[in-house]
Amino acid sequence: MLDVALVSLIQDMSDKAGVEGTIEYWTRVGENMAKRIGKEAYVGWPSFNVALREGRTGFSIEGDVTALTDLAITDVDGDVVGYLYALKQCCFVPTIMRTRLSVGALPSADRAVAEEYNNSVHDIAVCNFCVIHEKFTQEASKYITVGGQVLDCLMLATRGFTGDTKISEDNLKKIGMNPEYVRSLLRNYDCVYAILMKGARLAEED
């Protein structure tokens, strides 16, 4: 109920503070949530991936996160510096469904906020909640170390409730991955992102 109430307020908030104001609010919510969840440290990628599978990391708040261990990210020396991760169901789908069943369509501000975010910050949002989610993943990774290295998170692809998709070619280029690999992942996942060691020397794909 709380989340449906919040959805009904997105329009009001955007009317009063503008879509930019809503983006600011959501960014702060994502940031605060990561900060409040706190720090974690893992000896290596296997222990991080096991913790993730067992729902023990900060990322587990998103729901069932799958570590795509067949899609490793390597640095210029060929060492594994990260992996791709994916959510079978976007963490906002239950809220969207509850809203549709009890109230009706999402307010028009949902689309307006997503579009403004895509134009001004990062072209990856398929709904207004992607703003909170991307900021959360970016911030949460800063509080986690694997083998003593701080992590970074790059949002790669999203699929919205109505089937629209977004693929971040810039982020894919950073990790040297072909967009077609990620496009096929969207057949089975709503959200795909990379978690990797911050500052790793990556080989960009040509």
């Binding site: 709380l2 989340d3 919040l6 609010y25 702060r28 919510v29 994502g30 605060n32 949530m33 409040r36 708040i61 998103e62 729901g63 963490c91 906002f92 789908v93 239950p94 809220t95 469904m97 509850r98 069943l101 909640f129 909170i132 989610h133 959360f136």
Partner: peptide, 21 residues
């Protein structure tokens, strides 16, 4: 319906923190 609308911790927690903000 139950499966689709099951509570989601991300939104629940984010909303509480939004209110605290």
């Amino acid at each position: 319906k139950e499966e689709l609308t099951e509570s989601n911790p991300f939104v629940d927690v984010a909303t509480h923190l939004f209110l605290e903000d």
